[in-house]
Nucleic acid binder design. Structure first.
Lengths: 138, 138
DNA sequence: TTTGTGATACGAAAGCATTCGTAAATACGA
DNA sequence: TCGTATTTACGAATGCTTTCGTATCACAAA
C-alpha cells in the first residue's frame, strides 16, 4: 500500500531510459542504435539490460508481436524526482537549497534559463501565498 | 592539463564522507560510531571502506601514529559538484534548468529559501555580465 | 520446404561494491 | 611481564552490474 516499491535505475539503465523518454515506446533495435551513437555496445547487451529492467519493473513490455516494444514504467519526472531525492539524501544532508545553489553556482547558465527559474520561483510564491502552518495531508 | 582524475564515490563512501565533512579528520572508530547511529555496521567493514577510499584517493590518511586519521581529499562542495554533474549527465540530459525545476518543483520549499535562491540568481547576473549584445551600461 | 535474417532466451564470465572473519601488531593496565 | 583490548591488514564470500557468446525461435523469400 502506501509504501511504493521505488525502482533505482543504474547508470546504464538510465542511459536506456533517456532513449525511451525521448523516443517513446521502442524496440531493442532502436534503443541499441541510439546507444551506439554514443559508445560501442553489443545488441544482446542492450537486450539483456532491457530484459532485466523489465523484470525489475523499470520498463513495461509489449510482447504481443514477435518484436517486443519497451516503454518506461514511470514518467521521466517521477524518476528524476526519485533520483534527486537519492542524491539529496546521500550527499546534501537533505537540503534542497544547497543542491540548487551548487547546481547553479559552479556552472554557466544562460540568462534565459535564469529567468525561467525566476518565473518558477514566482509561481511557487503564488501557489503557496504565505507561511500557512502547513496543513499537510497524511 | 585541466582535466583531473575525478573520484566517483559510491553510496557507502558518501555516507562516510558526510561524517568526515561534518566532524573533520576522524579515526575509524569515530566514523564507525557515527555510522552505527543510523544502521548496523561492523567495525572492520568501515575500516575496509576507508582503506579502499584511501587507495582510490577519495580520502587522505595520517598514519604517523598507530591509530590512523582520515580526512576528505576534496572539499564538500567540490565533491557535490562532481555528483551533480554526474546526475545531470545521467538523468537530465545535461540540463541544469530541468534539474533545478525538478528539485524545487516537487518539494515544499520555504519562502526564505526561495529568497536565497533569488539572491543567488541576481548575483549571477552581475557576475556574468551578459551574452546578449544589448543593454550597454558604458 | 528450405534457407537466411533478425529476434529472443539463456548462461556465464568479469568486475566492482559491500560485508565480515581471522590474524597479526601494538599499546595499556594489573 | 602477561593478558586484554584496540587497531590494522588481508583475504574471501556474496551479490549486483555489465558484457557478450551461443542456441533457439519465427517469419518470409526463394
Amino acid at each position: 500500500m502506501g509504501k511504493k516499491n521505488v525502482p533505482r535505475p543504474t547508470e546504464s539503465e538510465l542511459e536506456i531510459l533517456q532513449v525511451l523518454w525521448q523516443h517513446g515506446p521502442s524496440t531493442v533495435r532502436l534503443v541499441n542504435d541510439e546507444l551506439s551513437k554514443r559508445r560501442e555496445v553489443g545488441y544482446t547487451t542492450t537486450l539483456k539490460l532491457l530484459q532485466l529492467m523489465h523484470e525489475k519493473g523499470i520498463v513495461d513490455r509489449d510482447d504481443s508481436s514477435r518484436t517486443h516494444v519497451y516503454r518506461p514504467a514511470l514518467r521521466e519526472q517521477e524518476t528524476q524526482g526519485v533520483l534527486i531525492d537519492r542524491l539529496l539524501e546521500a550527499a546534501f544532508g537533505g537540503s534542497a537549497l544547497k543542491l540548487v545553489q551548487q547546481a547553479l553556482g559552479n556552472r554557466k547558465t544562460s540568462r534565459e534559463e535564469l529567468d525561467q527559474i525566476r518565473d518558477l520561483l514566482d509561481q511557487m510564491d503564488s501557489d503557496q501565498p504565505d507561511q500557512t502552518p502547513n496543513t499537510d495531508p497524511k
